[in-house]
Simulated scan of single mutants.
Amino acid sequence: MPILHNRVNNDELKRRMLESDEARVTLSFYQYHNLEDPKQFRNELFLRWSKLDVFGRIYVAKEGINGQISVPESKFEGFKADMYSIPWLNGVRLNIAVDDDGKSFYKLKIKVRDKIVADGLDDESFDVTKRGSHLSAEEVNALMDDPDTVVVDMRNHYESEVGYFEGAIRPDVETFREALPLVEDMLEDQKDKPIIMYCTGGIRCEKASAYYLHRGFQKVHMIDGGIIEYARQCDQKGLPKRFIGKNFVFDERMGERITNDVISRCHQCGAPCDTHVNCANDACHILFIQCPACAEKYDACCSKACNDFKALPEEEREALKGKVEFNGTKFGKGRYKALRKDEPLDVS
């Protein structure tokens, strides 16, 4: 029976990736398609793409596929040929990362899910194929010059904190599922205005645009290929970028720079910074923004409490796990900025 998952320790895989000088290409893709047997397709794909040294995170569901991966540069054409040999994936656009060091992923994970994006929608209640129109970078810039145009960020707050389109509505949410009804309420009296929606690579807007058209919005548009493709087209055609800052990405890089603007601040000291990290205390692991000075001061942790815990001997940490609350056990992603950071570890 072939091995259909990784059996090497994650720390070892990450070490190999960081020490490797192999050039790799980071990319994302998605496709809606009716899959009869997602599990069988997942297993076949794992075997095929493991041979090509593909790393990354791929979700497979009855409604299609959604992937963020990296491929060795030397095997990219072979991967592309293999992918396009699957009839329903033939010609699918590959969103190539715009700021890539090749260290985005360190292993291949392919998971079967109920949906390729968790949206909370009843797909049977509306026609998901009747989606909004796709806009090129040139069309985005032109439509944004229209004062009636409403621009909506369909991402989560921790994504838009480090980068966004000028003048965009940015919902204060942690999930796409939360954003859908909130945005609908916010735009209730603007259903006849041109609406441009955007997300990282376009997949969230595909479903959202169909839903909003179903709900009575009349002029729904989305950026073709999301922020990634918009930035690529701007670079290729010499267009001004209306997106400023960083594009948050869900891999080891945490972000790719679109412009040199730093629009966010360190959650600990308030200095200009747009570097997302996870707390180095594994019992916490909260996502937050940290500048180099605070990373040194707190040993890459989000608080003194986490720093104190991380410094304890391993046996003491194990004994305290589950008994001590940290930022990551109390708060959602990016909510750290509301906390006091200098409280010592309380083990009472």
Rank of each mutant, 00 (worst) to 15 (best):
G225I: 04
D114N: 14
R215Y: 00
P194E: 07
V128H: 04
C284N: 02
K75S: 07
F76D: 05
Q40F: 09
P181T: 02
D342S: 08
N66D: 13
V183L: 02
D82W: 04
D21Y: 03
D224E: 15
F243I: 10
V249F: 14
I86T: 14
K246I: 11
A81Y: 01
D346R: 09
F288D: 05
E12S: 13
L213Y: 06
K109R: 12
N34Q: 12
K14A: 13
K341P: 03
A338S: 04
Y212R: 06
V60P: 11
L108T: 05
V54A: 08
M17S: 12
E12G: 04
V183R: 01
L47P: 00
F309A: 14
C199T: 11
C269F: 02
P2V: 12
I195D: 06
R155V: 03
E174Q: 10
Y336D: 10
N34H: 07
L18Y: 07
I96P: 15
D123T: 03
A338W: 00
E63L: 05
I96V: 15
T175E: 08
L320T: 02
D192W: 05
R131D: 03
C279E: 09
I228S: 15
D99T: 12
G167V: 12
I58P: 07
C199W: 05
L35W: 00
Y336I: 14
R155P: 12
E256Q: 15
D37R: 07
A61G: 05
P181Q: 02
S136P: 13
E12V: 14
I286M: 09
V173F: 09
T129L: 12
C284E: 01
A338Y: 01
M197G: 12
A208V: 04
K39N: 11
A295I: 09
G270W: 00
E315T: 12
E325H: 15
R24S: 13
E296D: 13
M254E: 13
I96S: 13
R317D: 02
E184R: 13
I203Y: 11
A305Y: 00
D100G: 10
D145A: 15
F41Y: 06
V249E: 09
Y336W: 15
M17P: 05
V347Q: 05
H221N: 15
A118Q: 11
N43E: 13
Q233K: 08
R253P: 14
N247R: 08
C269I: 05
Q31P: 00
Q236F: 13
S74P: 00
E124D: 11
N141T: 08
C291M: 08
I227M: 11
C205N: 08
E252S: 14
F29T: 09
E318I: 15
D235N: 13
